[in-house]
């Protein structure tokens, strides 16, 4: 931090990621804690999503690919009448679908959440990374939702609703029991640490 910022009294020591987790051998794209200090967990390690969520993502990716490219391929056959245009589209679709399916595992692994003393940190993203910090005192509602696909894998999604819709956050793909436990803890903490609007 430069000299010009009035940081001295309250900038304090940043929560430094220091854990006793032994370094893993070999190449690990998602070490915990991550190598990038900007998205390191604020003390300890990130809690990761359930590995079963990968399958949900893969199914979702396949479905979207079919929805996007299926009709497009059909329409191209009708409009251009050239088989190679359609073949090209199908090839792009297949590549896109394969890419998404392969990518799903890494994407799910990129998510992490951690509770601090007074707030909840959530990180995710591979190319475009994000770290959101929501104080417990700001949570108005904590929702647990789960659609048929999530339910089939015994998973649920936790939504954190704050008073400003822009700052809402979510943690997808937690085991149902974990999600409910997290929600109950959040509500308890938001009551205890709550501060009006």
């Amino acid at each position: 931090m430069s000299e010009t910022t009035p940081a001295a009294p309250d900038a304090g020591p940043e929560p430094v990621p220091s854990t006793g987790v032994p370094p893993r051998s070999g190449w690990d794209p998602h070490p915990n804690p991550p190598r990038d200090p900007l998205f390191a967990p604020p003390g300890g390690v990130w809690n990761r999503l359930s590995p079963r969520y990968v399958r949900v993502r893969q199914a979702g990716a396949l479905a979207w690919t079919l929805v996007l490219f299926g009709p497009a391929a059909g329409a191209s056959l009708l409009i251009f009448g050239q088989p190679w245009v359609t073949a090209g589209l199908v090839a792009v679709g297949v590549l896109w679908g394969v890419w998404r399916v392969l990518r799903a595992r890494r994407w799910v692994e990129s998510w992490g959440w951690a509770e601090r003393d007074q707030d909840l940190c959530i990180t995710h993203g591979l190319w475009f990374r994000q770290l959101v910090v929501v104080p417990f005192g700001r949570m108005q509602v904590v929702n647990v939702t789960s659609g048929p696909l999530l339910r089939s894998q015994g998973l649920a999604e936790v939504h954190l609703v704050t008073a400003a819709a822009l700052s809402d956050a979510k943690i997808p793909g937690l085991a149902q029991a974990d999600a409910i436990a997290l929600r109950d803890r959040m509500i308890e903490l938001s009551d205890a640490r709550g501060a009006g609007l």
Binding site: W127, R129, Q130
Partner: peptide, 14 residues
């Protein structure tokens, strides 16, 4: 009055 804060970083910013 702060509701929440976030950090974002894309490939170029990284």
């Amino acid at each position: 009055r702060l509701q929440s804060a976030l950090i974002e970083q894309g490939p170029l910013a990284r």
